[in-house]
């Protein structure tokens, strides 16, 4: 371009060349601007089983009217998310997914946020440590029998469906009870939440026991236990967990289930209490 300008001694080609040079210089500022003044918040994260993609929410907010375009963020350079904050948006939430490999407490590391808007010649970027962690549960692997429970179940088989044969009555609602079992009729009448109790031909107390999976390595045992936690939690049964260093009394509900999953996730991991 400059050669053309010089050889033809063409002032206007010079001018256009200078204009482009200036444009690129100005665009450095704009690329920088497109990242500066942005506030980035850590949003909630969602726990997953090992091998799945963990979800992290990042909230981007601006304090002025300055618009942000084509912000790219993520941990993995191939799985980056693009986002704009324009017009009336005050903030935007971006869901980011990171592939997990092993159970435990997962920290995706520092988040990369970058932009090469507007002209693509320059990139401004930042590595952010937002302190994201999430719990990665062991990968559930079907296997083994139902861990031996201390009490016998009829025909040695677990009924996965809640018992439907005998309606036993109502009891008070506890957080974690399935909403499917809430007696909405009673609720309409009394404004109190009651849960319908059914009797199934199942023993309610199941122990998921570390020792019931002989001859498998630790990780596989955890995977089997994880599978059974998920399986049993879908039933009406109360269940407990026995690990070499820990015993959790049988109970039911999602809080209980998550507690158990957590213990499976962090079992025997150095540095984690």
């Amino acid at each position: 371009m400059m050669l053309a300008a010089i050889n033809y001694q063409n002032s206007l080609i010079f001018a256009l060349g200078f204009l482009l040079v200036s444009l690129f210089m100005v665009s450095i500022l704009h690329t920088f601007r497109n990242l500066s003044g942005l506030t980035i918040h850590r949003g909630h994260s969602v726990s997953v089983f090992a091998g799945e993609d963990a979800e992290f929410n990042v909230r981007l907010s601006r304090d002025g009217v300055r618009a942000y375009e084509a912000l790219v963020l993520g941990w993995n350079t191939e799985l980056m998310q693009e986002v704009d904050i324009l017009d009336d948006d005050v903030e935007q939430t971006v869901k980011l997914f990171v592939e997990t490999k092993a159970r435990g407490i997962f920290n995706p590391g520092r988040l990369l946020i970058q932009t090469n808007y507007p002209v693509g010649l320059f990139r401004s970027w930042s590595w952010l440590d937002l302190g994201f962690t999430t719990i990665v549960y062991p990968r559930p692997i079907a296997g083994g029998d139902l861990p031996a429970s201390r009490s016998k179940s009829e025909e040695g088989e677990l009924s996965l469906e809640p018992g439907v044969d005998d309606f036993q009555g109502l009891r008070d609602y506890h957080p974690g009870d399935s909403l499917r079992h809430v007696s909405w009729k009673s609720y309409a009448r009394t404004d109190e939440l009651y849960v319908k109790e059914f009797a199934a031909n199942v023993d309610h107390r199941i122990w998921l026991d570390w020792d019931s999976f002989h001859g498998t390595d630790n990780e596989l045992r955890l995977s089997h236990l994880c599978y059974w936690v998920m399986a049993v939690s879908r039933t009406k049964n109360v269940y407990g967990l026995r690990l070499p260093n820990l015993e959790i009394e049988p109970d039911a509900g999602t809080e209980h289930r998550d507690r158990l999953l957590y213990e499976l996730a962090v079992f025997d991991q150095a540095g984690i209490a």
Binding site: L3, I6, N7, Y8, Q9, S11, F14, A15, F18, L19, V21, S22, L23, M25, V26, S27, H30, P118, V119
Partner: peptide, 27 residues
Amino acid sequence: LLGQALPLMIVLFVLFPRISPLWTVPL
């Protein structure tokens, strides 16, 4: 962007040392 580049262009246009043609080119 171009509007902001204009004043910079004018500076370069006026002050950038001009060089005589390196070779002649036919039109």
